[in-house]
C-alpha cells in the first residue's frame, strides 16, 4: 500500500474576477521511503498541492490518502496531529521560531510528538555542522545555517513523510548542492519519504521520481524528458 495516494484532486481559487483553476484531477502515489520531486512553472500549483497534502488547505474534490486515511475526513485537530506526528514541512523561508535558540528550535517538533532521540539528534547536529550554533538565535545565523536547522527540526522525530517546498531556494548554488545532498541522505537515514517542490532539475535528479505539473495536470517525467 502506498504511503501517499492521491486521486482526482481538483482545486481552484474563487475571487472577484472569477475562478482560477489550479489543479485538475491530479493523481499520483508515493511509497514509504521513496522520494519524488515536483516540478513545474511558477504558479503551476506545486505549493498548493503540498499544502493540500499537509492538510493546510481544502481541495474542491478528489481524495488524498495518507497511510490509508483520507485527509479530507480529518477535522482541524486531527490534521494538526497528523502534521505533528507523521509529517514534516521544510520551506524556503525556514520558518524557525525567532525567539527560541537553535537547540530549542531543533527539538521543538520532536518534543511536540514525544519522539525525541538523543543519538539521532547528535548525528544530525554532527552531519549538519550545527554543534557550535546551538545557543544562538536564528537571526544570528546565515541563511544556509538556518536551513540546516530547519532540516534538523524536520527530521529529528523521523516523520513518515517530509514535504519540502524549495528548501534550497534561498541559498547559493554551492550551498544548495551541499544541503540537498545532506538532506537526501538524512531523509533516507530517518526512513522517511520525501516530496519536494523544486524548480531545479539538478536538485530533482537527487530523488527517485520526478513529476511535472503543467496546465493543472501532473505527468511523470522520465530521464529523457529533460
Amino acid at each position: 500500500m502506498p504511503l501517499l495516494d492521491i486521486t482526482d484532486l481538483t482545486k481552484s481559487y474563487a475571487h472577484a474576477e472569477g475562478v482560477t483553476p489550479v489543479l485538475d484531477r491530479v493523481g499520483f502515489s508515493l511509497k514509504a521511503g521513496e522520494s519524488a520531486a515536483l516540478r513545474g512553472e511558477s504558479g503551476s500549483g506545486k505549493s498548493t498541492l503540498l499544502h493540500l497534502i499537509a492538510g493546510l488547505d481544502e481541495a474542491d474534490s478528489g481524495v488524498i490518502h495518507f497511510d490509508g486515511q483520507a485527509i479530507q475526513s480529518l477535522n482541524e485537530q486531527e490534521r494538526a496531529k497528523l502534521r505533528r506526528d507523521r509529517l514534516s514541512l521544510v520551506f524556503q523561508q525556514f520558518h524557525l521560531i525567532s525567539t527560541l535558540p537553535v537547540l530549542d528550535n531543533i527539538r521543538f517538533q520532536a518534543a511536540l510528538c514525544g519522539r525525541y532521540d538523543e543519538m539521532f539528534e547528535q548525528e544530525l547536529l554532527g552531519k549538519l555542522g550545527l554543534q557550535d550554533q546551538l545557543h544562538k538565535y536564528p537571526h544570528q545565523l546565515s541563511g544556509g545555517q538556518q536551513q540546516r536547522v530547519a532540516i534538523a527540526r524536520a527530521l529529528l522525530h523521523k516523520p513518515a513523510l517530509v514535504l519540502a517546498d524549495e528548501p534550497t531556494g534561498n541559498l547559493d548554488e554551492q550551498s544548495s548542492l551541499q544541503v540537498m545532498s545532506l538532506f537526501k541522505d538524512l531523509v533516507q537515514q530517518a526512513g522517511s519519504a520525501l516530496l519536494m517542490v523544486t524548480h531545479s532539475r539538478e536538485m530533482a535528479n537527487y530523488l527517485d521520481h520526478q513529476w511535472w505539473l503543467q496546465h493543472h495536470t501532473l505527468s511523470l517525467l522520465s530521464a529523457s524528458d529533460d
Binding site: A80, R83, R84, D85, L89, H95, I97, S98, F108, L112
Partner: peptide, 16 residues
C-alpha cells in the same frame, strides 16, 4: 503571527 504560523505548521492544534 509568524511564530503562531510556524506552530500550526508543526502541528500545534488551534485548541492547544
Amino acid at each position: 503571527q509568524q511564530t503562531v504560523k510556524n506552530l500550526r505548521l508543526m502541528g500545534v492544534g488551534l485548541n492547544t
